[in-house]
Amino acid sequence: MPAMQPPPRRTAAGPTRRPPRRAQAPAPGTQAPGLHLRAAGLHPQAPEPAAPSLAPVRTATRRLNRGFAAVNAACFAVTVLLACTAEDLLATEVAGRVNLGMALGLLQGALLLWTAARFDRRSEHLCDRRADALRAHWEAQAGAEADAEARTQAQAPSRPRAGHGHRYRSHGAAR
C-alpha cells in the first residue's frame, strides 16, 4: 500500500476564480471532483479545482448521515413516547382492526426502507465518486513519489539488504 499523504484539515472548498476549463474525460469509475461539486449543487459556480479536497466529501457525508439519522430517530422517539404516554390515541382504530399504533409502526418500517434506499443512492452519488477520485489522486501522487524515490535509490551506490522473511504487517499505511 503506498504511503498516504493526508490532505490539510478543513481545507476551504470554496470556488476558485479561474475560468472553467473543459473537463477531461474521466477515468472509468471516477470523475474530476469539480464536476461532482457542480453536479451535487453544493458549489454551483465552482469550476474544477486545482486539486481534489476532502471537504466536499466530509460535508456531503455529514449532511446525508444527519438527514437519515434525524428522520428515523425522530419517528422512533415519537412512537416510543406515544406508546408511553398516549396509549388511548394509539389504540384508535384507523382501518378495520388495525389501530394507529400498528399503522405508525408499518409507516415507520416503510420510511426506514425508503430512507435507507435513498441514503445509499445519494451516498453513492455524492460521496463514493468523490472519495474514489480523491483516493485515486492520492494513490497516484504516492506512486509518483515512490517512483522518484526508487529512481534516487537506483542512482545511489547499491548495498546488500537483509532479507525480511515472511513478515506480515498488520497496520495499513494510515496507521
Binding site: 493526508p6 483516493r135 495499513g172
Partner: peptide, 18 residues
C-alpha cells in the same frame, strides 16, 4: 499516535484500507 487527519482521510475515502 495516529493523526486525525490521516484517520479522517481513511474513514471518508478508504485510502490505506485493504
Amino acid at each position: 499516535e495516529p493523526s486525525y487527519a490521516a484517520a479522517e482521510a481513511r474513514i471518508l475515502t478508504g485510502i490505506g484500507s485493504e
